[in-house]
Simulated scan of single mutants.
Amino acid sequence: MLFRNEFYKICSRKILFTGVLLGFLFLAAYFQMSALGSESAYVDGTCLRRTDAIQYNRETARRFAGPMTREKAQAIVDEFGWHINEDELEMSETGDTTPGYYDNSTSRFVTYNLSNIRSNEGTPTALAASENKYTEEMMNGEYEYGYMGGWDDTFREMHMMLLWIVAALVIIACAPVFSEEYAGQTAGILLTTQNGKGKTAAAKILAAFTWAAGIYVLLTLFLVGAFLCFYGTDGLFVSAGLSFPDLITGSVLWNTDSHKPTGIVLLLYLMAGLLSVLVTAAITLFISSVKKSTFSALLWSAAAYLLPAAIYSVFLLGMRVSKVIMLLRLLFNSLPFFLPLHELTSTPVLYRLFGYLFSGCILVSGCVLGCRKYCRYQVGK
């Protein structure tokens, strides 16, 4: 009964319903304009866009699916040539080029990841030389190639926006949980009831966590469903190191995620996103238990989420590397704003485990301290 009442209290706030609706609309619009809008392919000079380009790219990539090798990469170059940026092409008003030009996601992958484009002033002439160990590793036959459209940086970008939307909704939902009762002077009365101490606080925290996890899962399912409908499942079976090249630069002794299927790595990434959402809820609940004003709790919670990211980006990244700076970077990267990104970069496993343990400690501490502060409200502590 207590949990149901507290959960209903959160869900009944109109601002949250409006925020969820706006979140859905924003993600749908951005998906249409940015994700689908950026898809293109050229077939004999004719420009394909959006879903037509996706279909053509999928069909082309299937022809070269399987272990990526130097011979396969060379065959792709021989058939389609190198990718040329659109601003360097002579295009008609319809976006078409002169006949004979071919370009697709497969040729773009080879151009940007397997050629000597970085050492040849932006114009590729051949596959990368053997001294480029990361590129050579991509062509040694240990990585599964396939259509990666959507399930790479496009999905990461969309999901990061989703996380920011969910974080805002969680802060708005959790900030009033305790502070609203302080402001309305009802906390003292509720704490004297039969279930006042302990059970009421636990019900509030459980309801807040249920709402936070539920809205994250709901929006994530919406996003994943959209990608499945338009991009299919092809990219989920590609080696993660090809979808996210940063994984390959990690030490082999610490990071083996680059050989795993992209779907497995993205699943871990989504689970890390759920943890970051719950940590955000725990921090907000603790602040709510301390502040007597809902507006004050809202501002402090937003600052707790955004300020570490600003400090890290503006100050810590530009400082000379030292043990203290490395420790501070480790701690800041373990906070909700950055936490999920560990799974898509070459972050060592031990580094990631520390981040998850640190976040888990924040989650438990926020709940325990928030519950304790609320239950002792009567005695002015």
Rank of each mutant, 00 (worst) to 15 (best):
R70P: 08
D44L: 02
D152C: 05
Y377M: 07
A129L: 12
E71W: 09
A281T: 13
G150C: 06
P348K: 14
M33Q: 02
W164N: 06
H259M: 13
L307M: 13
V277I: 15
A304L: 04
G241Y: 13
G149Q: 05
I76W: 07
S258D: 14
C367R: 06
G273M: 11
G355C: 15
V217F: 07
F227Y: 15
Y377R: 05
T294Y: 01
E137K: 08
D52M: 00
W300N: 04
C47Q: 01
T347I: 03
S251Q: 14
G214S: 04
V314I: 08
G150L: 08
A303H: 00
A282W: 05
A187M: 09
D96I: 10
A282R: 09
P261F: 11
N104H: 09
Y356L: 03
A309T: 06
F178G: 05
Y305D: 02
F209Y: 12
R320D: 01
W254D: 12
E180Y: 10
I362S: 08
V170T: 14
A272N: 07
R13T: 09
S365D: 03
C11A: 14
E71T: 11
I189C: 01
I215N: 02
A183C: 08
W211P: 00
L223G: 05
V290L: 11
L228G: 09
R70L: 15
L317A: 04
M68N: 12
R49K: 11
A35C: 01
L242W: 10
G366R: 11
R156A: 11
V43D: 03
D44R: 02
L36C: 02
N104Q: 09
A282E: 07
R376K: 11
G19L: 04
N5C: 12
P348V: 03
L278Y: 10
Y312F: 14
C367F: 13
Y112E: 14
Y269D: 10
N132M: 01
A29E: 01
L330A: 05
V43K: 13
T60M: 13
H83V: 04
N57D: 12
S243I: 09
L267H: 08
T125K: 14
F24L: 06
S289Q: 06
N140R: 01
A203F: 10
A201G: 15
Q378T: 03
S293Y: 03
M33C: 00
T94I: 00
G241H: 12
C174W: 06
